[in-house]
Write a protein that binds this DNA or RNA. Structure first.
Lengths: 97, 97
DNA sequence: AATATATTTCGATTAATTTGGTAATGTTTT
DNA sequence: AAAACATTACCAAATTAATCGAAATATATT
């Protein structure tokens, strides 16, 4: 993961509504949750929800899978682990070198 | 760390210039680096640098320590570990429960 | 094909952020 | 106290993001 990708990913996480959505999905596990379920649980207008979901998708943090009339949002854990690794890598490398 | 604090912290990291600054400091180790050194190394106008540094300070990601005429920026690793823990906690808790 | 349900797109408004020049402030050294 | 250095505050312009109602689209069921 390069710096711009990491910044983009962190930026999308850095909004209370989107972080709430993402955390809910992280908790949900590998199956994720339907948009409708998120809208209902998190009590958010659906057009706002859609925008935030689109942002999370654009950052690679979630994907969406259609299942009949339902669209399930599935968290992309690997993307999260990658951005965390990006933040930690090179830590203190300049110290006493 | 609560959700709003985490969102704030992630938001400030979610900008290419600020992430560059923070990563440079993370690499530098516990002593950090003077603002002047950052400005020079990262080739950024000092008023822009100041804004970004202030943002990182406001998120608790760095602190500044005066040393004569130099102000050193010191990364707050604990804040970083805390936000990482926040992102990981509750992972998959809803699965098969 | 009509209906019901689920989700997105459009569009407009409001609000916040980024940027960097210039001026001001604070600190150390002489 | 003056000079040199380091950093911040103030300001304005340009860009970008957040919000959500209303209209449109997609899918499933009958």
């Amino acid at each position: 993961m390069n710096l711009d990708e990491a910044a983009k990913t962190l930026k999308e996480l850095g909004h209370p509504h989107r972080l709430t959505i993402f955390k809910r999905l992280v908790r949900s596990g590998y199956a994720g949750l339907p948009v409708g379920k998120l809208t209902e649980e998190l009590d958010m207008p659906n057009s706002s929800m859609t925008h935030h979901i689109a942002s999370l998708v654009s950052a690679g943090l979630i994907i969406q899978e259609r299942e009949g009339r339902i669209l399930r949002c599935v968290p992309q854990y690997q993307r999260l682990w990658d951005v965390i690794d990006f933040l930690k890598e090179e830590c203190c490398m300049d110290e006493e070198g």
